[in-house]
Amino acid sequence: MATYKLKINGKALEADVDADTPLLWVLRDNLGLLGTKFGCGIAQCGACTVHLNGAAVRACTLPVSAIGAAAITTIEGLSEGGTHPVQQAWTEVDVPQCGYCQAGQIMTAAALLAKTPKPTSKQIDDAMHPNLCRCGTYHRIREAVTLASNKMK
């Protein structure tokens, strides 16, 4: 066990954990940030997607000891009260069914739009393809990413 100082959602936080503990479990078990979900544990489903210095990464396979001074953003820190254009688009398009994968979908979409504010439909498909949605909300995910991009004008 060691103490890790982390920069999460603009706050300095600490966790006493083993060096190999994935960020996902530090967020959930130690820091009470429960919006980042466990789905597969092997970076195949995207439910645990967070931002590491603005890029979308899988928290389930990212050891806490590898984070260093990088800034982490989770769904809780994406905006105040769900006001990020991607979150607003998700509500407007009424994307969620069960909702379990959606935090990861939103974080993936937000990272895409931060880098590529006007993505082509191929860029949207390429970015969102790795995130699984078992309910099959894919059409609305596509639609919401486009809407969010328009909102960010």
Binding site: L33, L34, G35, T36, T74, I75, E76, G81, G82, Q87, W90, T91, D94, P96, Q97, G99, Q102, A103, I106
Partner: peptide, 10 residues
């Protein structure tokens, strides 16, 4: 969906 706000904010 009545739970959208909870879902999108995690």
């Amino acid at each position: 969906n009545v739970d959208n706000q909870d879902i999108i904010t995690g």
